[in-house]
Design a binder for these strands. Structure first.
Lengths: 325, 325
DNA sequence: TTGTATGCGTTATCAG
DNA sequence: CTGATAACGCATACAA
């Protein structure tokens, strides 16, 4: 039989009755504000009663009263991408330690949903927002941190050092002797990708041959096929998934990696290691990114001003997908 | 300057004042219970005022008053695994349509955290639980659905047809002429993995050579190395990640796939396609699993009894990692 | 058809 | 040191 009746919630009044004190005393004790106001004896009695009854404060009531939900939202473009899973885990760990809960909003790579989702959130239980490659809807004033965005729109930013990342990558390729280097870039419109393109152009003395691809192996493969026609000897990919697409295209065309084509990815997703040959890629601390972002938001929520911009180091992980041309 | 002051929240009282009606009228209109009770004119006025003011009901207040939060929690073993990302997305999509929000709890493959996390949830804003390969802490009576568990402990279950999955896999291997088939199994303790082992033993007329591995490429590789020593000509893996470990081990030992060793995975994660050779695997509708599970929970929450067990079909996706011995 | 009054469980401000 | 008491914003029974 379906259990319609709600589980019998035990409230602070129940605890008070059990301990033989008033409800406000219970609240005082349990919220840790009893320092020198409540006798050790009563405090003990209250705690015992609460434990016996299995009392858990009602978060809705607390949120209503205090105006804070101790919860933040993380908005990501695509939770299906393991990278964001790692970011979420990092944020969640940091949040848990601070007594916060994080609710995940997955945009599903669909910018159209974005506004609606974020709107829903603002009405919702979120004290603040962690926005990954995403903007605050205009007109909304909220506590928010932007991840992987550039500073300048008033919100604190936490981002990867992508400039260093592309520098590592192209320097590595240049050192190997490559001169015709292509760029397999993301067709998802975000500042971090613009930045990569700009940086490559800068280091290479002009814009490289470029194709734009979606974050799917199949889509990236199609784009990479075009890139192969350009006659490049090496490609830098905005993401490991894109690099996977390049592997697929190369396999189709019979071009060997790294003998005929060097490829470098970005993110160091787990599967980069299991590709054949193992992918050289820019390794990134995704969990750290999430954790740092949460911490910045926590400071903001606490009324403390977080840094305007925090950039996290990256490192080139040289495996076997790169070689001299 | 950090904005300490909370954004000025607009309440139903503000809307009422603006529309020149009482607060209860606003509530009636906005909760859709105005059918034939409120004149079209006032209703219009209320809606206009709400829109102008940008009114969003306070969820904490509503939750306190009604006793429901319109939010469910999804507990997964490891959000870093893309499979669970897909499940989450499916659940989230279904939830969004029903006006629910889903909060994700990542156990991080750490059973020790599990109880604590779930406990926190029960106190929290979750009306119900979606438990992936996880049990309800004893003594807690809550609305919950189990995913990828076996029926029998009182909770409705939504699961994959893993029996069919292993049948497809071993039939395929048998048809190819394999007789020495190994099992690379998960060391994460869950019924779905026990079921696979049992089914294989059943189909094979006895327990196959087996190794247990964690869900990491490196760990799976180590385990697979042992398996290679057993002299099997084919392996069935509980998961594509495990299969990836087998690829790594095979590469190390110089055994060729599929000429020397056939391998079959489970889940059809995206990267299965980009492996060399592309992995033959049991494809599974992870998003559907999440969606169906949410729907079952929604029915439960509505006081309607969900099916005791729902099993979702799977299909063998034959690619190039299997061949005759 | 609409308004008044009440309470959900908490925290916080006061008196005592 | 402790206990009444007043909100927080909303939904709803009941009165008008």
């Amino acid at each position: 039989m379906a259990d319609i009746s709600a589980p019998p919630r035990v409230t602070s009044v129940d605890v008070a009755r059990r301990a033989g004190v008033s409800q406000s005393t219970v609240s005082l004790v349990l919220s840790g504000k009893a320092r020198g106001r409540i006798s050790a004896r009563t405090e003990e009695a209250v705690r015992a009663a609460a434990a016996e009854l299995g009392y858990r404060p009602n978060v809705a009531a607390r949120a209503l009263r205090t105006g804070v939900a101790r919860s933040v939202a993380l908005v990501v473009p695509d939770i299906t991408n393991p990278f964001f899973g790692r970011v979420l885990r990092g944020a969640q760990r940091a949040a848990q330690e601070a007594g916060y809960t994080v609710v995940l909003v997955d945009i599903g790579n669909n910018r159209a949903w974005e506004a609606a989702s974020v709107q829903a959130l603002l009405a919702g239980p979120a004290d603040g927002l962690l926005l990954f490659e995403s903007d605050l809807p205009p007109g909304t004033s909220e506590h928010a941190i932007q991840i992987e965005m550039m500073p300048g729109r008033g919100l604190p930013v936490v981002r990867l050092d992508v400039e260093a990342g592309v520098d590592f990558a192209v320097d590595h390729l240049l050192a190997l002797g490559h001169t015709r280097i292509g760029h397999v870039s993301s067709n998802f419109d975000a500042p971090t990708f613009d930045l990569r393109a700009a940086r490559m152009a800068e280091r290479l003395g002009g814009p490289p041959p470029t194709v734009k691809a979606p974050f799917t192996f199949e889509g990236a493969k199609q784009a990479a096929l075009d890139m192969l026609d350009e006659g490049v000897t090496a490609v830098f990919c905005d993401d490991d998934i894109l690099a996977g697409g390049v592997y697929l295209a190369a396999r189709d065309r019979g071009v060997r990696i790294p003998e005929d084509l060097s490829v470098i990815g970005f993110d160091d997703l787990d599967f980069a290691r299991v590709l054949a040959p193992p992918l050289t890629t820019v390794a990134v601390d995704a969990e750290g990114l999430g954790a740092i972002a949460f911490e910045a938001l926590a400071r903001d929520l606490a009324g403390d001003r977080p840094p305007d911009e925090q950039v996290m180091p990256v490192a080139l992980k040289v495996r076997e997908s790169t070689a001299p041309p």
